[in-house]
């Protein structure tokens, strides 16, 4: 298998996980209750752990001098290829849980498929990540139902979150030339099959949560090409602060 398209694809997946992990970690110490203060950093830890394994693999595929840390901390904004959904700011708890639910419901069938794919390293990462993602789907899914079918206030916030975030979901299922190559080689699943599973799972939970899936005539995309939202720069400034201020700093 050609390492370049595989490298690009691995970095895309890694970026999704690093950035969403960072967003979740921003809740640490600020969650609405203690149990959530445990759950969000725990999920962040899973995501960052998955990102580390992927960046390590990327560094190996690239076979230059870069390490996982170089990928995570020392690229410019245009070099990150995460989808826009994961960089959207936390906003409120309903918004954060919906963002999590959208992404985890996408990653769960994705990892399941990769774990029986053709790339040995990705298979290993996927087998671990699949189980971890199950907790994220369950945790966020339960909150979607509690909040959507909860009080007037919680339902309002949930509906606002759906209206805001749904246009960002299409981008998860796009496949550029590099990813298409990996799909054809059986390393990652084809995106239509994942989207069908995703739609089905989202519909089921939304029905229980008394939420409707909105029509999105104008999907928001660009992250995969390195074109990010304004909020992304602020996120990177914080994420990269230590390595930019103290280059080469180590624990």
């Amino acid at each position: 298998m050609n390492p370049d398209p595989l490298l690009q694809t691995v970095v895309q997946i890694a970026d999704d996980h690093l950035i969403l992990g960072h967003r979740l970690s921003e809740w640490c110490g600020h969650a609405p209750m203690l149990e959530e203060d445990l759950s969000m950093p725990n999920m962040a830890l899973d995501l960052i752990g998955q990102a580390r394994a992927l960046y390590n693999y990327a560094a190996k595929l690239e076979n230059k001098d870069r390490t996982e840390d170089d990928f995570a901390y020392l690229r410019s904004d245009r070099e990150y290829t995460n989808c826009l959904l994961v960089e959207r700011p936390n906003t409120d708890f309903a918004y954060t849980m919906l963002r999590q639910f959208y992404f985890a419901t996408f990653m769960q069938p994705f990892w399941q498929s990769v774990s029986s794919g053709t790339d040995e390293t990705l298979k290993g990462i996927a087998a671990k990540a699949y189980k971890e993602t199950g907790y994220h789907v369950r945790h966020s899914g339960e909150w979607i139902i509690r909040l959507g079918d909860g009080t007037e206030e919680s339902a309002r916030r949930m509906n606002d979150a759906v209206a805001e975030l749904h246009p960002y979901t299409d981008e998860m299922f796009t496949a550029d030339a590099a990813r298409q190559y990996c799909i054809e080689n059986g390393a990652v699943p084809d995106m239509q099959s994942i989207q069908a599973i995703w739609n089905n799972n989202i519909s089921q939970v939304f029905a229980q949560a008394r939420l409707t899936i909105p029509k999105t005539p104008y999907p928001q995309t660009g992250g995969r090409q390195g074109q990010h939202t304004e909020d992304f720069g602020f996120l990177l400034a914080e994420l990269q602060y230590m390595q930019r201020s103290y280059p080469g700093a180590k624990w």
């Binding site: 830890l45 899973d46 752990g49 998955q50 580390r52 990462i125 671990k128 971890e132």
Partner: peptide, 8 residues
């Protein structure tokens, strides 16, 4: 083997 991907 790691227990969890992000196990510190």
């Amino acid at each position: 083997s790691p227990t969890y991907s992000g196990c510190p």
